[in-house]
């Protein structure tokens, strides 16, 4: 019995080695596609890259982070085939081409039991910087406000601060959270909390019956629809950037990332697919 086992093992091993040697020469021509830039776009690019690789067996997609500005400068300098930027191109970057893959929007959320229906920009700034600490100052109950902020490094935090012109050192939170789900659970569990999460998540959870409400901003309702038609102010495009008109696999990749085949990946990251 023992001998038989060894023989079988040997045959399997030889087979594996032989198979390995045989398949090796077939894919010597591996093309590499390098993407660098925004850490917001990167996780999405990795997922799109995986699916792209599964369709193109000779392509390896390499995604590196370093911020939107690095994405833009790498694309310009030719260090990356495609740059990633979680913002629109600035005026001095108009020599580059940008392709919007998805939209990112965030919504300020309150507990459903909170009577406050809307807050203006200044009120939200004052609440987050600790100048307003009681809901009665903005037309709510006489209750202390629980400010929920995001952990450092999150893209939602970055977008939130950028829109309200705040620095994170100025924010005076009572609770700091990691992901969107934790933010929603915190606001559901605390009637006096104010927080912000991705519009996609907030709308989905509210639709599933979570006790939250999405506050409108500048009179525009926070909804995936308004992010998609770009009327919601607290949103931004997620762009792929190239220096020259893309060609070869870079062109294929950008077309793939802009197609409906990746909508599920975009939604899985709580971003909003653009109308195709």
């Amino acid at each position: 019995m023992k001998k038989l086992g060894m023989v079988v093992t040997l045959i399997v091993l030889i087979g594996a080695v032989w198979g390995f040697l045989r398949t090796k020469p077939d894919d010597t021509k591996i093309e590499k596609l390098v993407l660098t830039g925004s850490s917001t776009v990167a996780p999405l690019a990795v997922e799109i890259g995986k699916r792209f690789e599964s369709l193109h067996s000779n392509v390896r997609v390499d995604v590196q982070t370093g911020g939107s500005s690095r994405g833009v400068s790498d694309a310009r300098a030719g260090l990356a085939d495609i740059g990633m930027a979680s913002r629109a191109l600035k005026d001095d970057e108009k020599d580059l081409l940008s392709f919007t893959v998805a939209l990112d929007g965030i919504s300020v959320i309150l507990n459903k039991a909170n009577p406050v229906e809307a807050l203006n920009k200044q009120q939200i700034i004052d609440i987050y910087t600790g100048k307003i600490i009681n809901w009665k100052d903005v037309g709510g109950n006489d209750a202390p406000i629980t400010v929920v902020n995001k952990a450092e490094g999150r893209s939602t935090l970055e977008l939130f601060l950028h829109y309200f012109g705040l620095k994170n050192t100025e924010v005076k939170p009572q609770v700091v959270i990691g992901d969107n789900q934790q933010g929603i659970k915190t606001v559901v569990g605390n009637p006096d909390a104010i927080g912000y999460v991705s519009v996609g998540t907030a709308e989905y959870e509210a639709g599933q019956g979570a006790a939250i409400k999405l506050l409108p901003l500048e009179g525009i309702a926070a909804s995936v629809e308004n992010v998609r038609n770009r009327s919601f102010p607290l949103s931004r495009p997620l762009n792929l950037v190239t220096h020259t008109e893309p060609a070869g696999i870079a062109k294929d990749f950008i077309e793939f990332a802009g197609s409906t085949q990746v909508n599920d990946l975009i939604e899985a990251q709580y971003f909003v697919p653009i109308p195709r």
């Binding site: 850490s39 982070t65 952990a151 450092e152 490094g153 700091v176 990691g178």
Partner: peptide, 21 residues
């Protein structure tokens, strides 16, 4: 008081931290 422990700090921020952070 709301507090953050060393372990939570790593878990909260590691996923999105780059460079010196």
């Amino acid at each position: 008081d709301s507090v953050r422990t060393l372990t939570s700090n790593i878990a909260l921020e590691m996923a999105y931290a780059t460079g010196e952070h």
